[in-house]
Amino acid sequence: MPSENLVEIQELNFTYDVRPVLQGINMHFPRGKVVAIMGLSGCGKTTLLRLIGGQLKPSSGQVQVAGQTIHTLDREGLFRMRRRMGMLFQFGALYTDMSVFDNVAFQMREHTDLPESLIRDLVLLKLEAVGLRGAHNLMPTELSGGMARRVALARAIALDPMLMLYDEPFAGLDTISLGVIGNLIRHLNDALGATSIVVTHDVQESLKIVDYIYFMSEGRVIAEGTPDELRAADTGFVHQFVHGEIDGPMPFHYPGAGYAEDLALDVAHA
C-alpha cells in the first residue's frame, strides 16, 4: 500500500489553541494523481496543507509522505523532505526583492552547486513551461495576478518535486487565466510524474482536471469520489456544492465564533 500512495493522512486532528480546526481526517493520495480538496473558506484547507508540509504539527494522528511520518522528522529530515515538495501559495508569494528569473533560480542556487549557465538554461526551461520565458527580467510587481501565479508555479517546480501542493491556485483569476492554470497543473503533474494536491473552492475548474476529490466542511471530510461520481450525485452537500446552490444541507451561516475568526482569517490572507 505505501508504495501506491505518496501521501497518507490517518485520523488527523488539529487544534489552534482550543478551537478544533481538523477532526478525524483520513485521506490518501495515490502517486501520479491530481487530487482536489474542496470546501468553503475557513474549513481548514490551508491548515491541512501546512500539516502536510510540516509547518504545523498535528494534535493527534499523522501525515505520512513517501512512507515517512512528517511530524516525527527532525529539522534536517523535514528540510530534506521539503526539497522534494513544491508549494504554490495562494497569492504566489514571489520574493518581491528578486526578478522573475532569480525567483525561479532561487532553489537551484540554494540547494545545488549547478553552474550559473546551467541554472540559466533550467530557469528558462521552467519559465517556458508556464509560457513566461519572455518575462524573466521583470520584477514581481510588474506582473498581473495570473502571471504571478504562473511564475510561482515555475518556481515551485524548479527542482522537479515529487509532490505538488496548490493552495487555491484559482482564487482571484479571470476565467482565461483560470483555465490556463488548470491545464498547467494537470500537464505539469503528468510531465513531472508528480502527485498533486489542489486545495480549491472552484468546483467547475477542478472537476475538469482532477482524478479524485475530497469535500471538507468544518474540519471533516464529508464526501469523496471521482469527478464523475460527484457530478452524478444529485442530493446533499455535493449536489449543492457542485451546482452552486446557495441553500441546502451545507449551512450558509456558520456558528458565530467561527464566522468572526473566518473574517479575521480573510484579512490575514489579503
Binding site: G53, Q55, L78, F79, R80, M81, R82, R83, M85, M87, F89, Q90, F91, A93, L94, Y95, T96, F106, Q107, E110, H111
Partner: peptide, 18 residues
C-alpha cells in the same frame, strides 16, 4: 513584516531554506 504577510517567509520554509 511584508515578507511574512505575503507568505514569502512561509514559501522559503517550504523550499527548505531557513
Amino acid at each position: 513584516g511584508l515578507m511574512k504577510a505575503t507568505e514569502q517567509i512561509s514559501a522559503m520554509e517550504m523550499m527548505a531554506v531557513d
